[in-house]
Design a protein around this nucleic acid. Structure first.
Lengths: 158, 158
DNA sequence: GAGGAAGTACTCGGATATATGTTGTCCGAGTGGAACCGG
DNA sequence: CCGGTTCCACTCGGACAACATATATCCGAGTACTTCCTC
């Protein structure tokens, strides 16, 4: 699991609370992470259509859709790739007793078990949206610090 | 996800059908994979207490417990490590607005969502045993090929 | 013929190189705003 | 005072290295069987 997933999710939560575009550099300062590497993750989110980038002086990143319409799974797949983590190499078709392709229409039970587990994982991530995360943060973080951070996001001072 | 997980699961299914110990080299020939790398996976299974190794002329690997008592999760954790794939780096405690440790008794909602998903993944893998996999294989593979393979496992011919 | 001991062939186990993916970094292309000049 | 134009600072985007983990490999340690010798 790529560590950039965590940063991308935090950025999405932050962006859900900021109405103006936020530059990548500011997001990196807020989380105290490498600006250039965070930029790479944000580019991935941009390619996936989750955030929209605007260039120029007042440019930055902003969410495209409503935070309630973006699931955690969307962000994870955008950064880590949508392909399955387990890939069956069809070892049953190798070796001295290979199964003929005729019998391999269905995936082998091992691949099925792994895929079922990944399906459960995805379903869990799909059931949580960025809005849910932001709501929980609003409940658990003192309002003064939340407001100060949002104010700092739009202000020019570093 | 390590590719060796697939090999380890196949080996466990095979071992559940062979009453004698099977050498690693023979398992590798059966699946047409690198003997030395498969040996590494089998060593991991041995360290985890899933298989038992016996040395000597008629030595090899054998399952320790009943196949119905070994879950797919056990094998996956033995090979890939039991640690969680998502590790929270506590970015909320960094940057210009750090959350004081007083407010960080609970994991942040992002870490909670990721951990919940991993829990669902583990639960799915825990619900399937090696015996289940072997039973499905027995249902879907023609008995003659199955018998020939088991016969080949104990025979000395290559 | 039976018992014991040495030899041997086979096995596993950990320490050792290489390949792929993740982490981190850099510089160029493009755009919006702001300042400046002219009318 | 207003409009147009130039300039510029700021932004993103893709291309480029360094490190970590997964992959693949090798050789040494240990054991059960086999064989041979002795009684």
């Amino acid at each position: 699991m790529s560590g950039g997933v965590e940063w991308a999710l935090h950025c999405c939560v932050v962006l859900s609370g900021a109405e103006r575009p936020v530059p990548a550099q500011r997001l990196a300062q807020l989380h105290d992470v490498s600006p250039t590497y965070l930029a790479k993750q944000l580019q991935a989110l941009s390619r996936a259509g989750i955030v929209r980038s605007s260039q120029g002086a007042a440019g930055g990143y902003a969410l495209v859709r409503d935070p309630g319409e973006v699931t955690v799974l969307d962000v994870v797949e955008a950064v880590d790739g949508a392909g399955p983590a387990f890939v069956c190499t069809e070892v049953r078709q190798c070796g001295p007793f290979p199964a003929p392709p005729r019998d391999c229409a269905r995936a082998c039970p091992i691949a099925r078990a792994m895929h079922d587990a990944e399906r459960a994982w995805r379903a869990s991530l799909r059931s949580v949206t960025i809005a849910d995360l932001a709501g929980t943060v609003a409940d658990e973080v003192p309002p003064e610090r939340l407001g100060a951070a949002l104010q700092w996001l739009r202000g020019p001072a570093g």
